[in-house]
Design a protein around this nucleic acid. Structure first.
Length: 313
DNA sequence: TCAATTTGACCGTG
DNA sequence: CACGGTCAAATTGA
């Protein structure tokens, strides 16, 4: 059994699982789609799915390299490396400080933004077709590369509140991870070609975001257990059940890969070995049964377990 | 000359 | 109190 995760990491962990599962689902969807005869609609949908998959990876990587995860990794390696850390970097910031005399120093007198909508992209270039003005750069704890801060050039003339943070990716220094924060008003008010039109090689991050943010995958985590209801009166042997599951609609059920009984003999409790699925509610019919996935337990380990098969009368 | 960038200070948040 | 986001003076460069 893996070491239990600290409580403050559970939210991030759940998000990583969710994001990866979304990517997996999109990949499966794409796989099935590619088996169909090609048509323009298939191509468009496939393109959309690819964007979704890429976004899942990016977001998951971002979460996994966040300070929370770095922290736990360090704790788990029994802090052998803490002395090497970054004290030099810190002293640069807070240490000797030759204060510049300023007539009316309003620096730092800002209101930190409340959590606004944001999304993350990974790209080989920091160019995205929009006009940005750099307003800061920071060394980030435990990060190899500094983070740069940009605001929209039209912050004052159009009141655009969009900002972005760009940081070279440690896993791949050729790539940049960009976090876009806030609504890019210019997208809506300025229809000038230099704002909206982007070179062919540069894809509009907001365009991609809008394409993929309409995810219809349920994300409710309020249910505490995975419950699979089988609308079938008679007891079904496990082998029959799994056979039936695998013969069901592959898009809906492909994640429910296998089951094993946790009660003897042919009981109504099974342990789901399925690695991931984000469906919190789904139905699927076969000849002799109707299965309903009600919810998924994210409180346990990476794999959800203790799924229940309830026979309905 | 002026817009953009750099850089250290400052402060809110956890 | 440390960290990270923002400010604004100083610097750069077109």
């Amino acid at each position: 059994m893996a070491t239990p995760w600290p409580e403050n990491l559970s939210t991030n962990r759940v998000r990583v699982i969710k994001v990866l599962a979304q990517g997996q689902e999109s990949a499966t969807h794409l796989q099935l789609l590619l088996k169909k005869p090609y048509g323009e609609d298939v191509f468009l949908l496939a393109d959309k799915l690819v964007v979704k998959i890429m976004r899942s990876f990016t977001e998951a990587l971002s979460l996994l390299t966040s300070s929370d995860f770095v922290e736990i990794l360090q704790n788990q390696t029994t802090s052998q490396v803490d002395s090497v850390c970054c004290d030099d970097r810190r002293s640069r910031d807070s240490g000797e400080s030759k204060k510049r005399p300023t007539a009316k120093d309003r620096r730092g007198c800002y209101k930190r933004k409340k959590t606004s909508q944001s999304f993350i992209t990974a790209s080989s270039t920091i160019e995205d077709g929009y006009a940005w003005r750099k307003y800061g750069q920071k060394e980030i704890l435990n990060a190899k590369y500094p983070r740069s801060y940009f605001r929209c050039t039209h912050k004052y003339d159009h009141g655009c509140k969009a900002t972005k943070q760009v940081q070279r990716m440690e896993e791949d220094p050729q790539m940049y991870r960009t976090t876009y924060i806030g609504h890019h008003t210019c997208r809506d008010i300025l229809k000038a070609p230099q704002i909206i039109a982007t070179p062919d090689s540069v894809s509009d991050p907001w365009e991609s975001y809008m394409l993929t943010s309409d995810s219809n995958i349920p994300t409710q985590l309020d249910h505490q257990r995975t419950t699979i209801k089988q609308e079938h009166k008679e007891e079904t042997p496990l082998s029959d059940l799994t056979d039936n599951l695998s013969s069901l609609d592959p898009i809906m059920w492909k994640d429910l890969v296998s089951f094993e009984s946790s009660a003897e003999p042919a009981a109504d409790h099974y342990r789901a070995v399925a690695s991931t699925t984000m469906c919190t509610e789904a139905t699927s019919q076969s000849d002799d049964m109707d299965l309903v996935v009600k919810s998924i337990d994210f409180d346990s380990d990476f794999q959800f377990d203790e799924s229940e098969f309830n026979y309905l009368s």
